[in-house]
Amino acid sequence: MKVIYNTLFKRTSTYAVAIIGATFFFERAIDVSSTALFESINKGKLWKDIKSKYE
């Protein structure tokens, strides 16, 4: 925690960069995990699941 505070949070510039950088990974994680959750809930109803019946 001490190291994180002294390297990232102490200066506003590094703090802002850390927030922006973390947003990229946060967005990716949220998008991938929410898509996976949606697809697991709707398994069997999605086009990719029934595609083989029509093509």
């Binding site: 925690m1 001490k2 994180i4 505070y5 002294n6 949070f9 703090y15 850390a18 927030i19 922006i20 973390a22 947003t23 946060f26």
Partner: peptide, 19 residues
């Protein structure tokens, strides 16, 4: 430093979600 790091982490986490 540890206590400030915790506070800044909370605020920063909120900022990430906000962004």
């Amino acid at each position: 430093e540890e206590r400030k790091a915790f506070s800044y982490l909370l605020v920063g986490g909120g900022a990430v979600g906000g962004a």
